[in-house]
Design a protein around this nucleic acid. Structure first.
Lengths: 137, 137
DNA sequence: ACAGCAGTTGACGTTTACGTAAAGGTAAGG
DNA sequence: CCTTACCTTTACGTAAACGTCAACTGCTGT
């Protein structure tokens, strides 16, 4: 049985086990550990056990979306690193802004490819529907 | 020297060597041959040499766009196969239309992910620009 | 005290997508 | 005829992204 704390504790301090996050995100624990090996997530350790916080879940969501978009994990890491890079000095901020531009260009290329693929698919579908209609007559 | 035929022949019959298509699409000849091993392109053979036609270039363009979108080659093949599957019988047409729906769902999920990523990037950029402005003052 | 389960660390296996080296065929130019 | 450039097959290598044991550890209920 879970201790009542889970229900009464403030949401900020809510934590998860590896099995829980794996289950929630639909991946295996091996996958989660692999991401940790690559430095994509860094869960807290209570002794030897991993404790996942909200921050870790946010990262996992970012990672998995990156994967759905077809980015390699190493590239995903550079994105994550970008998002929580220190931005204290002007030079750092300018570097980050440059990186943002590069990423945006990449994403927009992908969107062009995607829209192209979608419109070709639509054209193809119309042809098929026309063929189907001509069979019916 | 190329024979004058290359200039006078009708554009339909224009062909390419493996080196030319590889160069044109910015990949190595090894890559092109790999796609052939997987059945993604099937160039004509003149003796032992490969002859690439317009049709092959169209396919290569499809393949590479698929790759930019992060699809595995096997999945790309199912797409290509879909595009030139026989559509004579009604049952075949209905099957193809089902596949089209599945693909569209996939592509639209990707677009959602993409738009989300882009808008997060924009938000982040604004924050950075704000930080930069506050440094200037 | 002890079984049982969840979690942990290696370490090797697998699939995908090519790279790369070896060894040779072929057509054109000198 | 011989070199050179381009093409061919065969085959082993490799990096990424996990899968899959194996062998422990550490709580938890009985």
């Amino acid at each position: 049985m879970p201790s009542p704390d889970v229900l009464t504790a403030p949401p900020e301090s809510r934590t998860w086990t590896i099995a829980q996050v794996a289950e929630e995100f639909g991946v295996t624990h091996r996958t989660v550990r692999h991401y940790e090996d690559l430095g994509l997530v860094t869960p807290e350790r209570r002794g030897t056990q991993r404790i996942y916080h909200r921050r870790d879940r946010t990262r996992l969501a970012l990672i998995l979306r990156g994967k759905r978009l077809g980015f390699p994990l190493e590239e995903i890491r550079t994105i994550i690193d970008l998002y929580d890079a220190p931005r204290g000095r002007r030079s750092q901020l300018e570097y980050v802004l440059d990186q943002i531009d590069a990423r945006r260009a990449d994403l927009e290329q992908r969107r062009r490819d995607l829209d192209e693929a979608l419109s070709e698919l639509t054209t193809f579908e119309q042809r098929c529907r026309a063929d189907l209609a001509s069979l019916t007559t």
